[in-house]
Write a protein that binds this DNA or RNA. Sequence first.
DNA 1: TAGATTGTTAATCGATTAACAATC
DNA 2: TAGATTGTTAATCGATTAACAATC
Lengths: 234, 234
Amino acid sequence: MSFQKGSRDYGDTKVISISRPTLQRLPMYHRALERSLAEGLKVISSSELGRRSGIDEYQVRKDLSSFYGGGKPGLGYDVLDLIEVIEELLGMNNLNEAILAGAGRLGSAIASYPGFERFGLKIVAMFDKDPEKVSRHIGQVLVLDVSKMPNLIQRLGVKMGIIATPADAAQEVADTMVRAGIEAIWNFAPVNLRVSEDVFVRQEDLASGLATLAHHLTNKARSRKCSTASSSEA
Amino acid sequence: MSFQKGSRDYGDTKVISISRPTLQRLPMYHRALERSLAEGLKVISSSELGRRSGIDEYQVRKDLSSFYGGGKPGLGYDVLDLIEVIEELLGMNNLNEAILAGAGRLGSAIASYPGFERFGLKIVAMFDKDPEKVSRHIGQVLVLDVSKMPNLIQRLGVKMGIIATPADAAQEVADTMVRAGIEAIWNFAPVNLRVSEDVFVRQEDLASGLATLAHHLTNKARSRKCSTASSSEA
DNA sequence: TAGATTGTTAATCGATTAACAATC
DNA sequence: TAGATTGTTAATCGATTAACAATC
């Protein structure tokens, strides 16, 4: 694997730092690369990768250059090598263990979302307070009573917590998680969690997504009425 | 409701234009405001709203000023009025009809996600190609055979399509939707859709979310090993 | 009026887009 | 070698942060 020259972790030296936007595009590159590999491509240019991932070719080169130094001028990037580096960066090779709070529909969907396995995510247990749900399996995952959560987090040393509870339970669950040692929370409940500084929270706010779409449709209708052009977006 | 002065739609004059980041923060403000209202607050300052929504007070004022002109220097914003304006902007008062392709776990979770109703989203039908799933109800929504999709989209004039199919079916479903008249697609399948310019696509890429978290945890562990400080984020 | 807080203007920061010299 | 394509530097754009004069 050709990481960028000089950006490897020599003892106590620096760690590659990737910007948030770049990081979020990595899964798209990964997908496009896998497809390319499946089609038999060994080498790919930034423009072709851009076309396949729907991202600007300038952007592609800029992004890749922030963590990859293996591109060959005149030729392009080695598909397989690039895939490996991205997988390393995304932690797809490490096993990312997580616990999931909330065994309702959303929780169940997350627990059995097929895209996650390939990204190294392993949900080791689910929690719910509803006795109806406790002791059942969802997919491969056993649902436990929420009172067992702190103990299990500590015993297994799990660092990632996923919250898929109703809104009014989310903050309390987050507090419990953090107290037990969770360092990163993926929150699907529509609540702005308040946690201590050193806990990373990713708010997966479906309402925001919906807001964007709804606003777009409303605006489109409005601007059409005013006989103006419509805007677009990929 | 006090929209910003001069930004209303006078015949053919301009439409309020809100930046994407601002738009995505509106649901957070909305939530914080609802909570404030429930607690009996009639008026709220930008700093208090910031505290409650987890957003910088500078940001709050900047955001609000782009669409709201009703703030009173020395006092703050009228909670109820602000809520109403945001609801209007997010189309929470209009009914947003949508059709949903894919009646698997993810599709089912979306169809019955409680947060959506309040945002005016109404899923009028679901589609699947699995005969096992067709003709059943998921929540309130009837699942139909995917062959009936184009006709139904046209008959009801639905403009929003939600894709929750497996990855390999997503592009074909999107094409069908667009041909039938869908103007905005909310895509939960891990595929970069290719659609015509005037169709709005929101890619709800759960893999991106996971990438952010996994990278953060990996990096945190690595930087701890090197005895350096850890970074954080809200 | 005096104190508080807005709305707006200016400064900073970071990401995207573009262009091009280096190089396979 | 000539042609293609990278990696990087420069230019542009837009968002966030800060500061402050206007005003309730």
